[in-house]
Amino acid sequence: MPGSDCSSLKMKRLRPILSPMRGAVAIFSKDLNSELRTRYALNSLIMFVVVTLSIILFSTAGETVSPSLSAGILWIIVFFAAMSGLSRSFVSEEERGTTMTLQLWVEPSSVLVGKLLFNSLLIYVLNLMIIVAYMLTMPSFVVKSPLIFLITVVMGTFGLSAASTFIAAIISKANSKGTLYPVLSFPILLPLLMGVIDATRLSVEGATFGEAAGDFKILLSYCVVVTTVSVMLFDFVWRD
């Protein structure tokens, strides 16, 4: 019967062309290539960091900044740099009208994973520069427990990019994208920021690994929970 043929065709779910793994790698390399070609994000982010850091240095000139305060300032720079750098990751697809093409080629989860990998790489590179510049210019910021600091930066940066990548996908569908991004991200990122600031403070004060273990547990579970929830919910945001 022609009718049953038609309904069976409708029931058949269209599969994207690339497999999930290859799709994620393809999205990642696409973003990396276009970034390397234009250096749009990295150039403006470096300037952003230079400007922010110099404002902080001007305002603290001649003051003695306590170690715990300097830990907080470091993550303020990182937070706002991420907010200005990652907001475009999905907005650019909407503006160029490439969203449909991506929907045809890859699974939604691959888009998220690919974008997350690229954003993490971007923020890791950026954070490396921020931390080097910060250590050179802030005399009171001396890390006494390098291991704690390293683990904090590695986990904190991943959690930051996981949450902000997902929020970037949400705001790409809204009207006032630029202003909305930090507003939506801040409540979600606050537990992470409080955790990393506390762990950074401990590393500057020269705490033992055991003292920071509680913060690491919180950071690790935050990264796991946020990544899981974003993979689960991304379908709804993407196939809109």
Partner: peptide, 26 residues
């Protein structure tokens, strides 16, 4: 910030779930 009703409903639902999940960390 979202005018299309279905889109507004979907995105705000997604946001409230993400927000609810992170609150226990406090």
């Amino acid at each position: 910030a979202i005018e299309v009703e279905e889109r507004r409903a979907t995105l705000s639902a997604v946001y409230s779930i993400v927000a609810f999940v992170t609150v226990p960390f406090f």
